[in-house]
Design a binder for these strands. Structure first.
Lengths: 234, 234
DNA sequence: GTCTATATCTGGATAGAC
DNA sequence: GTCTATCCAGATATAGAC
């Protein structure tokens, strides 16, 4: 699947994401009119990710944020009750979206090699669509308060578990070679992460997300698939 | 080579590193007695990396730092003239050490597969010895002031260039398959980074640095080496 | 719902005693 | 060389007008 086709297929506008966020946090957000609330939440999230990714969430003052979002300090505080809560909301909403898209796209695939290929591609493409969120989430995890930090780690292990599960399945069916599934999954994840963490590098070299995905799938499959020796020698 | 043998072979005590740091910054550091200066620099660096890695450099107050290092605010300011300069010193000193150890350990190896294996191993083991520095350096790069940021990126590309160079050599000699050398190098680096960025994960699973290195080398070489078909079929 | 104005606190940096 | 005391810029958070 091409990246553009994927992007269209998941239909994830900023408004959709902010609406989800609003619904999850009706109690914390003071603004009652949905239309107004969604519009401003989009601006707040965009601004928070932009500034946070440029100089770190801790260094972002709420003054910066309010001016970048085009709101006054007072108005901003009608949407969030503290800087820490903002961090929490951002992380939480992203996790929900990632879990949903991954499971939607992987259900119904049985053949391990195909499933592994698809899982890598979907994760990579999704991280491209939500690049600012993925980057932010990675970089700020360790600064989260205790409970939120625990949830973030749990979520990381969950995604990794998807890959490990596919590897185990392939080994059980005899089509993958014997490897440590969690270690294999961890390395796949590491390579997926590089795409959104070091974007400047790949942009500069004009590597597209499709090329990156193909290289990655090629590397992983040619290592893990048991080769058909007869075919190679004929 | 085993990790412990490597650790001993490079002889990198905290004191050695701080002494180097002192020599490079004679002009900026006010303390004249080497013994005193080195002792306190060790404490300052340890504290800065510990607090910085726990909650981010930006969130670390110099009050935290001074108390963790066991110095008063005033004393601290005899060693650094600003928080930003501290950041600079940490990065700079690490880069020098990494460049030195890498080049020392790779000189004189000609065979591409052996050299690639050795480069991966040395980088991995070094990142284990200096884990707090590698972690810090990765996480704080984007918060550096302009010039320091440029240097950090340059250094990242330099290390990557070492791997890309080995891959090119192997391709030229006809022992490696045709791949994009920079993309291959980038992925190797991504997997190396995971070791020091996600240490908690590997510790929890009781994966040793040697096991991680073997898996990584196995993955890379079995992808990139051109298989001897005759041997496989005999 | 959004704004301006402001109370209160925190943290980087320095002066000057010992 | 190290300490205590202090200055002051800049930050979070809130009160109250519109």
């Amino acid at each position: 699947m091409k990246f553009e086709a994927f992007r269209k297929s998941i239909r994830l506008s900023k408004e959709d994401i902010s609406r989800g966020l609003l619904e999850e946090n009706r109690d914390r957000i003071k603004i009652k009119k949905e239309k107004v609330a969604v519009r401003n939440l989009v601006k707040i999230m965009d601004a928070a990710l932009a500034i946070g990714n440029a100089k770190g969430f801790a260094s972002m003052s709420l003054r910066d944020l309010s001016s970048e979002a085009g709101l006054s300090m007072g108005a901003l505080y009608s949407y969030i009750s503290s800087k820490e809560e903002l961090l929490d909301m951002i992380q939480q909403q992203g996790r929900i979206v990632v879990a949903r898209v991954m499971s939607e796209n992987l259900s119904g695939i049985d053949e391990p090699a195909e499933k592994l290929q698809k899982a890598i591609q979907v994760h990579l493409y999704l991280s491209e669509v939500l690049q600012p969120w993925f980057y932010f989430s990675y970089m700020e995890t360790k600064n989260l308060p205790r409970e939120a930090h625990r949830k973030a780690i749990e979520s990381e292990l969950l995604t990794e578990g998807i890959f490990a599960g596919i590897i185990e399945e392939g080994m059980a069916k005899g089509v993958f070679r014997q490897v440590d599934p969690r270690l294999g999954a961890a390395l796949i994840k590491a390579m997926l992460q590089d795409w959104y963490l070091k974007r400047w590098k790949y942009e500069r070299r004009k590597v597209t997300v499709e090329e990156y995905g193909e290289f990655l799938v090629d590397l992983v499959l040619s290592y893990i698939l048991i080769r058909d020796e007869k075919k190679a020698c004929s």
